[in-house]
Amino acid sequence: MSAPGPGAGGLVRVRNVQAGDLQDVAAIDLEITRLPKPGYWAGIYQRYGTGRRQQRFFLVAEAAGRIEGFVIGEVRDWEFGSPRCGWVFAINVRPGARLAGTGSRLLEAICEGFRRLGVHKVRTMLARDNQLILSFFRSQGMMAAPFIPLEIDLEPAGADRE
């Protein structure tokens, strides 16, 4: 997948990830989260980046030979009765490269991939205190979905439960 764009963002090319990009992708994540996770990125590349499954996307935005951002997602079918939809579960742009439309380009590119697979709904989920990415998705027109995320703290095995 390759999606060159117009204007200032025209210098940015969105394409499928390659093995050599992984170090840059992990570095962007580290710069933002401050948590190194090399094993995680190797696993994500194996599952989403090797192109073995048509329904999975791992795209990067490249400018002047440097990776400036990435987006990862997949098509999911019938989760809790939901018809197939596109899921974006990671998107990030190097802090120094923001406000240039790179995030929008990445999202457009993955949505185009979903569209080609016949998907007409895209969803995502993120922490409600992640104002930066929440605002980004809102600015792209995303609205609250008809789902409520739930969680529970698992007690240690053998602990009594009421």
Binding site: R128, D129, Q131, L134, S135, F137, R138, S139, A144
Partner: peptide, 11 residues
Amino acid sequence: KATFRSISVAT
């Protein structure tokens, strides 16, 4: 609150 914080005037 999270909803109000995530929506700018431009959005």
